[in-house]
């Protein structure tokens, strides 16, 4: 008969799930935020997105080419990093800074550590922190172009005594900030999509945002509205939903995810209230990224039939 029969160890079928499929879903989930950012901050937002995505994909392709590694841009993870980076930048950022940020994210944080799956920290978050420190560009806030009234800066950088912006404005994103971070409505839509597609679970975002809410609630003297304004401001939603849930740099089990979210929430809260920077989301996620291998080893599932009392 034929000599073409394959011999292989089982299983002989596969779910069809792939890295590229997951990344495609993440990109789709970020589209509402991208569109909202463009509406709120103008067409230049799209330019920033395009430059970041092209630079990230380009740098990864170039790096793989130079070190003669199999091309990996087809898994769309570089595109996701580019998109996330862009959505974390203000629309009026100098374009050359976007390119430097992409270089840092892809080459320094991702490729030099071995590429996808090997980076110890989230590339987009780390690049954002790098740019914040190197350029101070994040303090140059973009302002909404769709509202006529005097626009506010991100509420977190308002001084003491300034009036809190309207909660509905915060929910819709009609306030200053990075391209993709202000419109909470769009971010929540993306969250729902990711949950429905089972790309992520609820644990990290809910634990993270919940912790910030509860801490702020007590800090603000049990004021519900102020606590709500606190979670709707800054980069909390985009960070909690899209950056803290990065597979590579967050724990695998539900228990680990809850610890990760709780820790990130506490750090964010502390930086927001007591730190020198107005925003703590990036630092919090970065710090929890570093703890992830430890959290993973503390929170493995109990193995069925091993040790302990029988059920």
């Amino acid at each position: 008969m034929n000599n073409k029969l394959k011999l292989a160890v089982s299983p002989h079928i596969h779910s069809g799930q792939s890295t590229a499929g997951i990344m495609r879903d993440v990109i789709i989930s970020l589209l509402p935020a991208t569109i909202a950012g463009t509406v709120i901050f103008g067409l230049r937002s799209l330019l920033v997105v395009a430059i970041c995505v092209a630079a990230c994909v380009g740098f990864e392709a170039l790096f793989n080419f130079i070190i003669k590694k199999d091309q990996t841009i087809g898994d769309f993870s570089a595109a996701v990093t580019g998109l996330l980076l862009a959505l974390n930048l203000p629309a009026n950022i100098p374009l050359w800074q976007c390119v430097v940020g992409a270089l840092f994210a892809i080459v320094v944080v991702k490729c030099l550590f071995g590429g996808i799956g090997c980076n110890p920290v989230n590339p987009a978050i780390t690049a954002r922190v790098f740019m914040l420190i190197a350029f101070g560009s994040m303090t140059v806030q973009a302002f909404p172009t769709v509202v006529d009234t005097v626009s506010s800066a991100t509420p977190l950088s308002l001084g003491e005594g300034a009036a809190m912006p309207d909660l509905l404005d915060l929910f819709l994103g009609l306030n200053g900030g990075a391209i993709g971070e202000t419109c909470v409505l769009a971010l929540v839509l993306g969250f729902v999509y990711l949950l429905v597609r089972r790309v992520i679970t609820w644990h990290i975002p809910v634990a993270y945002i919940g912790t910030v809410f509860v801490c702020s609630f007590f800090m603000e003297g049990m004021d519900f509205t102020s606590a709500l304004a606190m979670i709707l401001s800054g980069g909390l939603f985009i960070g909690a939903i899209f950056m803290a849930t990065d597979y590579v740099t967050s724990p695998a089990t539900a228990a680990g995810k809850l610890i990760f979210g709780l820790g990130a929430g506490l750090i964010t809260f502390v930086i927001r209230y007591f730190g020198v920077y107005p925003e703590g989301v990036s630092f919090a996620i970065l710090f929890m990224n570093i703890l992830t291998p430890y959290i993973d080893s503390w929170t493995r599932h109990k193995v069925f039939g091993v040790g302990g009392k029988k059920a």
């Binding site: 799956g117 590579v248 695998a252």
Partner: peptide
Amino acid sequence: TTACIRCGACTN
């Protein structure tokens, strides 16, 4: 077969 992305699907 590509690189592990640490998604946790195996253990979950």
